[in-house]
Amino acid sequence: MSFISIQDVCFSYDEDSAAPKAVDGVSLDINAGEFVTIIGHNGCGKSTLAKHLNAMLLPDSGMVVVDGDDTADENKTFDIRAKVGLVLQNPDNQLVAGIVEEDVAFGPENLGVAPDEIRRRVDKALKAVDMYEYREHAPYKLSGGQKQRVAIAGILAIQPQCIVLDEPTAMLDPSGREEVISTLLKLNRENAITVVLITHYMDEAVLADRVVVMDGGKVLTQGTPEEVFSQVELLKKHRLDVPQSAELAYRLRGCGLKIQDIPLTQDDCVALLEEALR
């Protein structure tokens, strides 16, 4: 049984039924403990889909089931949001309190958790994202990567089983991106938290267990990073990036070089070329 099951979901922001749908018949399963990335252009429906995972949006047709509960069930809304946390793109706009630790406490406070327990959760969450020393700082003085990690801690304090992140690194510099991604990998591996990461960066996408490519509100293709990025032609046709190593290998294969697995990392690519040139 998958943790989140998306079943033939359609959603449109427009009342007009002729207008193109933001999400158009998507079916997808997210398993517990998985690290899934969703890639695609702006406007491909990935952010809209993300908001369906924690009942921020409800499907026009089809359904989303989170841990056995239908998101359309109003009595379950807050249970679902406590199970699936959503982190947004702009870290500035997610921090609601003037002090880091008070911000992290916001979620459990809303859930009516006892004060001592909140304290414990806040400390734990801040340690998990490596921001414990900054607990008494004002958020606006932190770097982008630090702010985004605080935002993640704010979600962790709710103790969700799954975190969905909508382009959390889009506004960050390379070191901020690295901080956020390594935090996510750690949470996924050590704390067994399911991660759904929406991103534009292919170097982030290749780290996942599974990559889902969306276009025009539909799922274009999905599979392991190796499976997805070896379809260089399809990705190029939809003007999506592929890692440079994959592109090089793909073009060499086009000229007749025998390549079994398209290399996604620098080391794999070097090994492959070394072999071919020897």
């Binding site: 007749g256 070089l257 040139l277």
Partner: peptide, 20 residues
Amino acid sequence: TVDEAFEALLPLLKKEGRLW
């Protein structure tokens, strides 16, 4: 760029007889 790399590797691979 990938283009440059491709152009540089192609003759080398040809020499090795790896392309067909």
